[in-house]
């Protein structure tokens, strides 16, 4: 019965927006414009553009707002996020959260991935649980398993060399992380699909 009520509300929402000039806000209309860079339904095909389809709604929403107010640095995302209001950000976040996560097509270096596995277990798994493959609502950190290495590298290189991407909430973890550690971590995440 509950399901039926939800269905009715949806149908009325559609009919009602039909009468208004601007129509309603649909997640697909807002979210689809991101696909030129982030791939169809957020399944990116380019290494420096992260997969965003299947991340949690709260993570996407918070991240977009951080880009918008400048608390997370970026090359283009800050300029882009400033063009969207709260309702649009909520709609796109919900849209991408509903999509299936599609891991990158990269092949991992097995030896480096093994090294990376140990580093992940020691430093990262406490937050990015289960090999970084967990996506849950709330303030959970993002999924890393199957994320593109180009994006992760850009982000992690910047943690120790602050520029535009460094806003990791546990920055101190990276104080003793070497470039080799980062390379191994990237291969570990690429090995997990």
């Amino acid at each position: 019965m509950r399901l039926h009520i939800a269905g009715v509300a949806l149908a009325i929402g559609l009919t009602f927006s039909a009468g208004s000039q601007a129509g309603g806000i649909s997640g697909s209309n807002i979210g689809n414009t991101c696909a030129g860079c982030h791939g169809v339904n957020g399944a990116s095909a380019g290494t420096t553009m992260p997969v965003i389809g299947g991340l949690s709604k709260s993570y996407i929403e918070t991240t977009m707002k951080k880009y918008r107010d400048g608390t997370r640095g970026a090359t283009v995302m800050g300029r882009i996020a400033k063009g969207y209001n709260d309702a649009q950000i909520a709609a796109m976040s919900e849209f991408f959260a509903k999509q299936q996560w599609v891991s990158s097509s990269e092949k991992a270096d097995a030896n480096l991935a093994k090294l990376g596995s140990a580093i992940h277990a020691k430093r990262c798994d406490v937050c990015h649980e289960k090999d970084g493959s967990v996506v849950v609502e709330g303030d959970a950190p993002p999924r890393l398993a199957g994320q593109w290495t180009g994006y992760l590298q850009m982000y992690l290189n910047d943690v120790n060399n602050p520029g535009w991407a460094s806003n990791h909430p546990k920055k101190q973890i990276f104080a003793t992380t070497t470039k080799e550690d980062i390379d191994a971590l990237l291969q570990f995440y690429a090995s997990k699909k």
Partner: peptide, 9 residues
């Protein structure tokens, strides 16, 4: 129906 709001990028 009327189209929903669009984003232009």
């Amino acid at each position: 129906v009327e189209p929903d709001e669009s984003a232009y990028l």
